[in-house]
């Protein structure tokens, strides 16, 4: 009281006047960062198995990737991996979730860029990853195609030989089956289409087949009417 507090305060500031300054000298001296410091999110393409755990655990939809199904194996092939860093909140959930440790934060915290587009980082599949496989990967693809073509041809033959049996799997009513088999005999194109679809996608084939039938029915109805008149 009575000014003692004031003098004590003055004493404290005076004491600090002669103490060492604690200001960090960034950017002249880089700050010391803890080992766990989260700066910029980095991705290692080689390790990634495209499991998608990171994408699912990210709260802000920062991460996304594109894959391609390989034909000879069930494994997905990672084509590109995108980090849209502007939405990242450095929560570390993606890093913790990744089973292969391909994501990690480095110590670079100077993240500002001149344009918004620069923030988004897209990792493309490195060429050397494909080189080793490419040699045998290419013929496989050709083989694949010709294999499919053979199947379609076989299917077409079977359809022409015994349409009722195969079509029974797709259509329910006898009448419809009859109509369609007639249609296929008269029109080779329709038969080819149905055969191809049967090989590739059975469900779609059924739908298309049903579509053909209804269309043909309509045509016939109209033809009948025209005849009467």
């Amino acid at each position: 009281m009575n000014g003692q507090g004031l003098i004590k305060g003055l004493g404290i500031t005076l004491k600090h006047f002669f103490q060492k300054e604690i200001t960090e000298q960034y950017p002249d001296v880089m700050p010391e960062l803890a080992t766990r410091f989260r700066g910029c999110l980095q991705f290692e393409f080689e390790k990634c198995i495209a499991c998608g755990i990171c994408v699912n655990s990210c709260p802000n939809n920062v991460l996304s990737f594109e894959t391609e199904k390989s034909e000879n194996s069930k494994k997905k092939k990672l084509l590109s991996y995108t980090i849209d860093f502007q939405y990242c909140m450095f929560c570390n959930l993606c890093v913790e979730g990744c089973p292969k440790d391909c994501l990690h934060f480095d110590h670079d915290f100077e993240l500002s860029t001149f344009s918004r587009d620069d923030i988004k980082r897209v990792y493309l599949r490195p060429a050397e990853m494909d080189e080793e496989k490419e040699a045998d990967a290419a013929p496989v693809q050709d083989e694949q195609e010709s294999k499919e073509q053979k199947q379609i041809d076989a299917m077409l033959k079977a359809l022409q030989k015994n349409p009722q049996k195969i079509l029974a799997k797709m259509l329910e009513q006898e009448e419809d089956i009859g109509i369609l088999s007639e249609l296929m005999q008269s029109n080779e194109k329709t038969a080819g289409k149905i055969a191809e679809l049967l090989v590739k996608d059975k469900e779609k084939a059924a739908k298309v087949a049903a579509g053909f039938v209804t269309k043909e029915k309509k045509n016939r109805l109209q033809a009948e009417k025209g005849g009467e008149e």
């Binding site: 003692q4 507090g5 004031l6 305060g9």
Partner: peptide
């Protein structure tokens, strides 16, 4: 010392 005890502060 710097604030609480200061008369102005009080």
């Amino acid at each position: 010392g710097l604030m609480t005890g200061n008369e102005i502060w009080e």
